[in-house]
Nucleic acid binder design. Structure first.
Length: 589
DNA sequence: GCCGTTTTCGGCCCGACTGTTTTCAGTCG
């Protein structure tokens, strides 16, 4: 079993235990273990087999879960899961996708009304049998009917970060146009730069919350109002995304922004740290913990020790401000406490883009158009890396077409030089395919004439782990290959990564001085943050590239930079922050 | 089920909103 299989088992156990009404902290323990495991780069097998290490040293994994992991590794099954799965009818998982229905209510519906399908649930609502249940009522019954379509619609995946960003930017412009709104910021997983975003969070400072919330309701993108209170309003926006707006006073803005940025796990850890210091953090500020704090209403508590800015909140617990991209509840609080949060790479640090296509293959713009667009964006160098011949669908280049393109690039560079020193250098590159049977799609004799070679795997993605890994290791060892393109091949929400031993890839890249790509395309973001972090620790340089197929694709660099920041990487970890001469001196020598 | 420079037992972050409730449970983030 792979790490993700085992993480899935623990998630499933947590879901089942939640439905059964088990201890909430036990459930949290299973979810915490699943999170830890899905963030691992090394396989659980290798950790278990390493005499220097122990599964029990993993965050949130104790004696019991370690033994369950061993059982899963040995047998591929877990008796507890088989046992519990049999106790929960399948309809439960469908019903839990109805917004507003949680495990408690679903359990009551299943057990008292014998609901066994969404159709049966709909009928029970129409016949008024749901409203008659204890704890339910007319409004709950109607809300179930209204929300049933969301449970039935299988297209329920989270938005890509860039899609969420498009909606949020429009929304922020609208909210900022409200005269009653002062500071306005996006929060949540969008602000943390997550690969995908489930819903949009906006925090606003205002003296008149009601006016701001009415302004949101009046937005042209608002499709329905889900709930509206004194300080919080939720609406359904474009593409059915839920938008949560929270309005607070000036002295609480930082605390609210911190709270709504999350992640949940980061906040749990931050608040736990606060409690150890005799403090309590909520979305209004930081307070001293009184002996009977629970009984004291917020307004009657002592003065806030901070909350106007995020910096104040972190400072109150003895920490420097932590960049949102690192707030995932991993080791960021410990690092921050030791002053070891690295300066994260910024978009401005990136000097060049080293993976893009032109109309010579499957790009939409010509060489000259791509170069002009890169120049407009202030890039100092770019590599033109069209597909090689194996990618016939894209009219991949054979050696002779490639050499002709490189002649064009030579000519272009000469004319760019004549324009003066503020120009751009165009590198002669290729995205060469790693062939199914091994080897590369162009001979070394051609590759050695290139300035920049990206090697990528597009075919034979179903091959077994050792075959895929061997193909990539061979490319890494090739003296002319500078970087491995989208090293795992995944497409977010569409296609899983191919089965590759990423630990071996990282080790080989480190040994050969070959870079690994952080492909900035919002559907790829490949390497992912965990792999990129591990590569950075291993001393591998990464290249953040757009893989642009048209001029607007060059704007995607910022998505790759966000991914690198989430991996905790600095400019020093990223090869294309270097001046060109140093970049080209990187591999050989 | 995990965890421990006060602890191997007794804790485990915190609050808004809704609906169905005479004081709170469930859901959500």
């Amino acid at each position: 079993m792979t790490n993700s299989d085992i993480a899935a088992v623990f998630e499933q156990l947590a879901d089942i235990l939640e439905y059964k009404g088990d201890n909430a902290f036990r459930i949290r323990a299973y979810r915490g273990a699943a999170r830890t495991i899905s963030g691992l780069v090394e396989s659980l097998v290798s950790i278990r087999n390493d005499p220097q290490r122990s599964l029990r040293n993993l965050d949130g994994i104790g004696a019991d879960l370690a033994s369950k992991i061993e059982t899963l590794l040995d047998t591929g099954r877990l008796p507890l899961l088989d046992e519990l799965t049999a106790e929960v009818p399948a309809v439960v998982w469908e019903m839990l996708r109805v917004p507003g229905l949680g495990p408690r209510k679903v359990k009551l519906l299943v057990e008292t009304l014998a609901i066994d399908s969404l159709d049966a649930l709909e009928l029970a609502c129409q016949e008024g049998r749901v409203a008659a249940l204890k704890g339910f009522g007319e409004k709950t019954q109607q809300s179930i009917l209204d929300n049933l379509p969301f449970a039935r619609n299988p297209i329920h995946s989270r938005l890509l970060w860039l899609e969420a960003d498009g909606i949020l930017q429009e929304l922020l412009v609208w909210i900022r146009s409200c005269p009653e709104a002062r500071r306005v910021e996006g929060a949540g997983s969008w602000r943390r730069g997550c690969e995908t975003v489930g819903d949009l969070d906006v925090v606003v400072e205002s003296q008149r919350p009601a006016a701001v919330m009415e302004h949101l309701v009046a937005w042209q993108g608002t499709a329905a109002v889900l709930l509206q209170g004194d300080t919080k309003t939720s609406v359904r926006g474009p593409r059915n995304v839920q938008i949560d707006l929270r309005v607070v006073a000036e002295e609480s803005f930082g605390a609210a922004l911190q709270y709504f940025t999350g992640s949940q796990e980061h906040n749990v850890r931050l608040r736990t740290r606060a409690r150890e210091l005799g403090l309590s953090i909520n979305e209004y500020g930081v307070y001293r913990l009184e002996p009977a704090a629970e009984a004291v209403p917020r307004s009657a508590r002592g003065a806030s020790l901070g909350g106007q800015t995020e910096e104040e909140v972190y400072r109150a617990v003895g920490l420097p401000w932590i960049p949102p991209e690192l707030r995932e509840g991993r080791d960021e609080l410990v690092l921050a406490g030791q002053g070891l949060i690295p300066p994260l790479v910024k978009l401005d640090d990136i000097r060049g883009d080293l993976h893009m296509h032109t109309s010579a293959t499957d790009g939409e713009n010509t060489l000259v158009e791509m170069v002009r667009a890169a120049l407009e964006r202030g890039l100092k160098y770019i590599a033109i890396t069209d597909h090689s011949q194996r990618v016939s669908m894209a009219r991949g280049l054979d050696a002779s077409r490639l050499l002709r393109q490189w002649e064009d690039i030579d000519t272009l560079n000469q004319s760019l030089c004549a324009d003066g020193p503020a120009g751009i250098v165009v590198l002669k590159g290729i995205e060469v395919d790693m062939l199914e049977k091994g080897g590369l799609d162009l001979p070394d004799e051609v590759l050695r004439q290139a300035d920049w070679v990206v090697a990528s795997l597009h075919y034979g993605q179903q091959q077994p782990r050792d075959r895929i890994t061997a193909r990539i290791l061979e490319a890494i060892a090739n003296p002319w290959v500078r970087v491995i393109g989208h090293p795992t091949g995944r497409l977010i929400n569409r296609r899983p990564p191919y089965d590759v031993d990423i630990e071996a890839v990282i080790a080989a890249a480190a040994g050969n001085g070959t870079c690994l790509e952080i492909n900035a395309n919002p559907s790829r973001l490949d390497l992912n943050e965990h792999h990129a972090a591990a590569a950075g620790k291993a001393g591998v340089r990464m290249v953040i590239s757009t893989d642009a197929h048209d001029t607007s694709g060059l704007d995607l660099l910022r998505c790759g930079v966000l991914q690198a920041r989430r991996a905790g990487l600095s400019a020093a970890n990223i090869a294309n922050t270097l001046p060109l001469a140093e970049l080209l001196a990187c591999k050989r020598g």
